[in-house]
């Protein structure tokens, strides 16, 4: 099956991104497909300049999910409003519009929303 995530909160602010990572990792390990759409401050979870000495690196965790086959896209408008550029985000992920979000919703068998 395909499992979709909407993640609306930024890194090192809420446990949401960790919960998404834990669940997405397990879905991938079970052979499911994962789609993740990062919205609002959620786009910052893909910032490739994240440095977190002696702490989990959330951008690296996102990169690991992408490498394992999760499709991860961040809202381009949200990125623009926050000064985050196409070239600022980790490999294997992209900025995208609401068309991609809608397609993720269409493709998914299960959908999870993480906000405030």
């Amino acid at each position: 099956m395909t499992v979709g995530f909407l993640l609306r909160t930024g890194p090192y602010t809420s446990q949401n991104v960790d919960t998404c990572y834990q669940l997405a990792s397990r879905f991938l390990a079970r052979g499911h497909e994962v789609r993740m759409f990062l919205y609002e401050d959620g786009v910052f979870n893909l910032d490739k300049e994240i440095q977190s000495p002696q702490e989990r690196n959330l951008a690296e965790m996102m990169a690991e999910l992408a490498q394992k086959g999760a499709k991860i896209k961040a809202c381009g408008t949200c990125a623009k409003f926050r000064g985050l550029k196409r070239t600022d985000i980790i490999e294997g992920t992209k900025l995208a519009g609401m068309v991609v979000f809608s397609n993720y919703v269409k493709e998914c068998d299960r959908f999870l929303s993480f906000g405030f």
Partner: peptide, 17 residues
């Protein structure tokens, strides 16, 4: 645990958060 929650999500038609 997280494995169990993963299974609950597999089994649920809707997840409402």
């Amino acid at each position: 645990n997280y494995d169990g929650l993963t299974s609950l999500i597999e089994e649920a038609k809707h997840i409402i958060s």
